[in-house]
Amino acid sequence: MLKKEDQLEILRQFRQAGSEKVNFAGGEPFLFSQRLGELVKASKESFGFPSVSIITNGSIVKPEWFEKYGKYLDILGVSCDSIQPKVNFCHGRNNNSKYLPIEQSKKIEVLSKICHQQGILFKINTVVTQLNKNEILADFINRLNICRWKVFQILEIKNENGGKQLQPLLISPKEFERYIQRNSFRLHPSKKKILVKESNEMMQNSYILVDEFGRLLDVSTGSKLPTHSIIKVGLNKALEELGSGFDMDMFYKRGGYYQWQKNTQ
């Protein structure tokens, strides 16, 4: 939604303020693969971010992208709630009823191998709902060359995903914890430490989110409340408006600081 020069200006202001990591998410960022590549390159080469990452569903990522921009990327994260097609369809991950689970798992395994070849750290993000709360995804995770498996409790956000459609998907903290325990037990001993859980409490104000208009988003009250655009008022003013919408202590508590640079040696 913003011009490239405005996007670059936002990145510049964050880096000037001391930010060390920038993550491009969505929606699906690879829908704009060329612009995404340009921003990833600028983040690393022009602004010197120590860590640059992307979150994608992996469905339209092409190997050629890595040939051009892979050297500027530290982490690729892929959203994978399940390898069962019905779960993914109901989660809105894919609108094709003929979607086969083997296709998704193979796509993710290919991306994992590409990242391994280029020294890019690879991680998986999983959202747990009533539909997949009893699933054992750890068996699939064990097959991947992965540095981190982030598991989220489904979070209701007013005016975005809330309402009658979401209610049947919500799970309790106890149900979320049981999912964590079952899957942790099935992880290979060498992978036990990669599982990172994020409850609703940990998620709500432990991220600094920038939307497509360059506004910071306060999610701490259960809805996304925007500040003025960084382009109009500057980062410092926008952060003042955000106020308690970001909690540094909660950021550390959820394990937000970890090995987030690829090995360039």
Rank of each mutant, 00 (worst) to 15 (best):
Y258T: 03
E201M: 14
D218W: 00
E20L: 15
K232L: 08
F152G: 04
I120E: 01
Q181N: 12
V87G: 04
Y179D: 03
Q34L: 12
C115Q: 00
L2W: 00
L242P: 11
G37S: 14
N134F: 02
K191Y: 08
A25F: 09
V196I: 15
K158E: 10
C80Q: 08
G37D: 14
K86Y: 11
N142Y: 13
K174P: 00
I208A: 06
G256R: 04
F47C: 12
S43H: 01
F14C: 15
I146L: 07
Q204P: 13
S97Y: 14
N125S: 05
Q84R: 07
G162E: 14
N23K: 12
V52T: 09
S184W: 07
F152C: 04
K237G: 00
I124F: 04
L8G: 04
L187A: 12
Q117L: 08
L76D: 02
G255Y: 07
S97Q: 12
A138Q: 15
I231E: 05
I230T: 02
P50H: 12
L242S: 09
Y257T: 11
K62L: 05
I54K: 01
L36N: 05
L131R: 15
S184T: 11
E38C: 08
S97G: 01
S46M: 13
I75V: 11
F14L: 10
L73T: 02
S112V: 04
Y72E: 14
N236L: 14
K191N: 04
M248H: 13
N132W: 12
D218C: 01
F89R: 10
D6S: 15
D81G: 04
N145D: 08
N134G: 03
T221N: 14
I114N: 02
Q7W: 00
L137Y: 10
S46V: 15
E45L: 13
K150R: 06
I231R: 12
P189C: 00
D81P: 01
N132D: 10
I124N: 08
F89A: 15
R12Y: 07
N205G: 14
S82V: 06
I194W: 09
E38H: 06
S206D: 13
R143K: 13
G70M: 10
N57F: 06
Q13G: 04
F89E: 08
N161G: 07
C90Y: 07
I208M: 12
F251C: 13
K106Q: 11
V128W: 03
K253E: 11
C90V: 03
S223M: 08
G119I: 14
V40K: 03
R254M: 06
S53C: 15
Q130W: 02
Q265Y: 01
T56F: 00
H228E: 11
G234E: 02
G245S: 04
E198V: 15
Q261F: 07
V110D: 10
E9Q: 06
F30W: 11
F185Y: 13
I154H: 10
D211P: 03
K158M: 13
S184N: 05
S105W: 12
Q165K: 14
G77P: 00
S105V: 10
H116Y: 14
I208L: 15
F30V: 05
G58M: 13
D218M: 03
G26T: 08
W260A: 11
L39G: 00
M248W: 09
E160P: 03
P101R: 02
G222E: 02
